[in-house]
Design a protein around this nucleic acid. Sequence first.
DNA 1: CGGTAAGTTGAGTAGAGTCAAATTTGGTGG
DNA 2: CCACCAAATTTGACTCTACTCAACTTACCG
Lengths: 247, 247
Amino acid sequence: MFADQILQMPQECGNCPIRHRAVCARCDPDELEQLDRIKYNRSFQAGQTVIWAGDRMDFVGSVISGIATLTQTMEDGRTQMVGLLLPSDFVGRPGRNEAPYNVIATSDLVMCCFRKRPFEQIIHDTPRISQRLLEMTLDELDAAREWMLVLGRKTAREKIASLLAIIARRSALSKLSGSQGEAVFDLPLTREAMSDYLGLTLETVSRQISALRRDNVITLRGKRHVTIPDFARLLNEGGNEGQALIS
Amino acid sequence: MFADQILQMPQECGNCPIRHRAVCARCDPDELEQLDRIKYNRSFQAGQTVIWAGDRMDFVGSVISGIATLTQTMEDGRTQMVGLLLPSDFVGRPGRNEAPYNVIATSDLVMCCFRKRPFEQIIHDTPRISQRLLEMTLDELDAAREWMLVLGRKTAREKIASLLAIIARRSALSKLSGSQGEAVFDLPLTREAMSDYLGLTLETVSRQISALRRDNVITLRGKRHVTIPDFARLLNEGGNEGQALIS
DNA sequence: CGGTAAGTTGAGTAGAGTCAAATTTGGTGG
DNA sequence: CCACCAAATTTGACTCTACTCAACTTACCG
């Protein structure tokens, strides 16, 4: 019983949707060819666990499509999401053998995986790749630190508003120009996943979403389809008064 | 009026206390010589601001001695610490011009600074340095994610216990063998800095420290000198039941 | 020997959590 | 197409942890 399928036909890098944003973004054709030799695609259904914390990891890789979460769990079940993985995000750490977090597919997910040992060799030999990985890791660190402010100092209402702003920003559906105007998107997370992201209970998430709807900060169609009539107002509700968010 | 002094006599790398832990840890003599040409020492007094968020940064560098904090502040003054910088930790981000956070010297502080532009050139040309920086950044990202669990899901008592455990681990004064035995150290942070670290108020920090003392989890001599008679118990109080912390 | 900053403690409050029940939704099979 | 089920979500009532405001104590520095 396998948790996933290994696809027989990996995509061509040439028409890969994340070709210019992922760890391979700046590869030349020769470097791409090296990566191509050690890569394979894997797909997961929504809800499947990609990796359990503590498991041996023998691959690293990029999210091609779909959404995954990185979570930590305490012995008594308390759970905190520590990463939200969208297409082009990198999973896994060269130089470490055990997965530090659970990786769970939130939607159907396709990943481009690299066998870990040869990938480590390639980044050792290929500065362009290791430098791209450094750049991506620094961006993730900035995002984690932004998130720490949300977790440590924002109210429940501000937390929800901040999360909606982040998702709106990273979602292609929105028609944002800068921080102005309307945004429309589908929530990729359940209320429970949102609570794990924000360090809240799912009841508090639900109440605050209802409150934001009552106050016309957001409009819902169904449970998941969100319209934000005034994005600047949402940022303000999130405590980001006029500031740009980290993208 | 300058916030710091530029020392005329930078230390020799040869007898530098962080030589084998900092970003330069794996440099060969030639690489060290390159870094040496662009480096200078700066010292700061306790309480001084090293960099303001939003300021132009024209250097990066390593903490040689002392302690600094990375903090984010909201418009209404709410403050969250997002990094604690101990000797050998790296400050600054190649490829970014503006400082994203306030960097504040908590104790007297000495830094080994590199002019930013030439440093960027060196990491571009020197894989050993950029790979060391990647490794350090990945470690910081892990620490930030551990911290996210603390901020999002732990109680005030668990937060304090977790912070004491982290400081004990990173402090040289402790006589720990693994997770066993006694630890002794001086708190490098005020109650207020601890509250900014943990997303609490300083009153709550004080109350929880008093509670841990009443319960004999810790012993205080003065306000800052801490003895932990049973380190495993402290870990347990922090919700880390028997698990190793990220160092 | 004050004076000031740091830390402690107390009393009351508020915001988010807990437990419980109702409601909505999307999918399934008849 | 419709009834029904399980899961997701919403809402209500009550509780409790951590916050706020305030007073007091301790430690340090000149």
